[in-house]
């Protein structure tokens, strides 16, 4: 009787310490039945990538509210790719201007969620787009 569970990680790269949003999401993913690894604030891109690989997650959600997403997010994507882990679905969230969406998509991000997005929207997106890998 096997049951594949969705495993996700919520991480905050960079110097931004505003983690309320990340914590609300972690809690909401828990309530959606996912297993959520939360790694806390002030992570380097290397720490985010390495933890995602060690935990074998299906999705890595990065949160950044400080404006450094254009550097930090693609850096994590690059590190995952270098380690053969670019099948981990990347999503981003935080204070991200519209014009930055495309460069992040180009870097490998599958979705960007900004403030005001209903939690159900995010959970539904994950349920549709993130499949546990085997």
């Amino acid at each position: 009787m096997s049951e594949r569970k969705i495993r996700v990680m919520v991480a905050k790269p960079g110097l931004d310490g505003h983690d309320r949003g990340a914590r609300v999401l972690a809690r909401c993913f828990r309530d959606a039945g996912f297993e959520v690894i939360y790694t806390g604030c002030h992570q380097t891109p290397e720490q985010c990538a390495s933890a995602a690989i060690q935990e074998d997650v299906d999705m890595l959600g990065l949160s950044c509210l400080s404006g450094a997403h254009r550097y930090l997010f693609p850096q994590v994507a690059k590190l995952l790719k270098e380690q053969g882990a670019d099948d981990i679905v990347l999503v981003g969230g935080g204070i991200i201007p519209d014009q930055d969406f495309q460069p992040l998509y180009d870097a490998g991000f599958k979705a960007i969620f900004t403030p005001g997005t209903p939690l159900d929207t995010i959970v539904d997106w994950i349920k549709t787009n993130v499949k546990p890998r085997s």
């Binding site: 569970k5 972690a26 809690r27 993913f29 828990r30 309530d31 959606a32 039945g33 996912f34 297993e35 959520v36 690894i37 939360y38 790694t39 806390g40 992570q43 380097t44 290397e46 720490q47 390495s50 933890a51 060690q54 935990e55």
Partner: peptide, 25 residues
């Protein structure tokens, strides 16, 4: 819900880049 928040590794993240350490929740 069967969901979980796995938060132990928050305390251990300084070792995340050390190839001699493997943390699994």
């Amino acid at each position: 819900t069967g969901g979980a928040i796995l938060g132990d590794r928050i305390r251990m993240q300084r070792h995340a880049e050390d190839p001699g350490v493997f943390v699994r929740s």
